[in-house]
Design a binder for these strands. Structure first.
Lengths: 218, 218
DNA sequence: CCAGCAGAGATTGTCGACAATATCGCACAC
DNA sequence: GTGTGCGATATTGTCGACAATCTCTGCTGG
């Protein structure tokens, strides 16, 4: 979505990318005020550029803008994170089903290999590597599904969850549960069974919702 | 999403609302160029306001903006309309399932009454009234589902489909098919059967996809 | 006759300054 | 001591002008 190759300054792009990065990395605390003037000086662009970038990010649901009162980092309550993940559930289900229909032999082989790597990462107790492979798997499935609209919506939704995903990643025992679910999704796609793939994907995200709810009290 | 109560001028709001209206009513042809200066003069606001509004609408997927080359009304090909509707399918399914869980007796009675009205509209051959009731039904279900994220995403997706929905509404024989599907959704919710409601909602939107594909050649 | 190039016009991107609005602290009245 | 109104400050919204970029037209050369 965000074009990458930039040669000229393109103030608004600089500001938007910098902000997006800061948000994705969690450098900015949720609820923190985003003062146009400060950001402009910080990133070396004009206020107009920062302004445009903020409007842009507001559209992506990353920042909240109140008229005449400025912008702040949008804070997503656990409750809303659950709602977002519910939507992810059905959309990832859609992608899994489509992937089961569209996958080539090569792609299935690649997914299966990825599943093996996932298993190895869990066995070796490498949660960080597992997390990376996890993302890779989801991305791969969505690529195979070739559903640009669903992909775009999922990107938007995921971007709003960075903070919660972070908290989720370090829950002990989670990888073991997650692994089984992931393998089920891969199996569904590999056997070209759209309904099984969709059901597995939904079951997986449903378990994420359950875990999310538990972080509420934890 | 768009705040409604406005008293002052608030240039950007004026511009954004005016543009949104024009797009929703189909006054602007798809692909038409949107020149900032012209729009500014047309709506009596400054170019900066128009600019902000255009960035806003770009985020909503209504306008396409190419750096240094300006904005134009986004044209959604039938192919993309199908992709959008696929996403609608699973999201409306989610809402229907949630509605089946959450509906109160009063809400079910209200839905049933709406179903009767729909049947009457078809029997009387009033496609316009049917279309209105149709929208009302979908809105009502989403209200009951109380899933703000899904609602927001659906609003965005629907806004991108105005042109295609228009073409779809006047297909002869469509109301008869559509009515049965709608009644099935209502029945699923009324019997508080989430799976039936979801299946019915998905079947309904799936038939919309089918109809959409046929307009491609028609 | 067609390809390539240069210039003019149009349009977007950027900038700095000004106006409008909200927030906060303080004095004052009760 | 508490609540209310006023003024100072900070921040956003708006404006007009300038710079950068793109598009289109017409000309030149092969």
């Amino acid at each position: 979505m965000a074009d990458s190759q930039v040669e000229g300054a393109a103030g608004v792009r600089v500001a938007a990318d910098a902000l997006r990065d800061s948000l994705a990395r969690g450098d900015l605390a949720p609820g923190q005020r985003l003062v146009e003037g400060d950001l402009a000086e910080m990133y070396g662009v004009t206020r107009a550029s920062v302004r445009a970038a903020l409007i842009d990010l507001t559209g992506e649901g990353l920042v909240e803008r109140i008229p005449n009162r400025g912008a702040r980092v949008r804070v997503v309550a656990v409750e809303e994170a659950v709602a977002i993940t519910e939507c992810r559930m059905v959309l990832e289900g859609l992608c899994a089903a489509r992937a089961a229909r569209a996958a080539t032999d090569d792609e299935i082989a690649s997914l299966t290999a990825l599943g093996d790597q996932l298993g190895a990462a869990v066995a070796d107790g490498e949660p960080l590597k597992y997390s990376d492979l996890n993302r890779e798997l989801h991305r791969r499935i969505r690529d195979i599904a070739a559903q640009p609209v669903a992909n775009q919506v999922l990107d938007r939704l995921n971007a709003q969850l960075v903070r919660h995903q972070f908290r989720l990643a370090l829950r002990p025992g989670r990888p073991q549960v997650s692994l089984r679910e992931h393998l089920a999704i891969i199996a569904g796609i590999a056997s070209r069974d759209p309904e099984a793939a969709e059901a597995a994907a939904r079951a997986h995200v449903a378990s994420v919702i359950e875990a999310l709810r538990q972080t509420d009290t934890a």
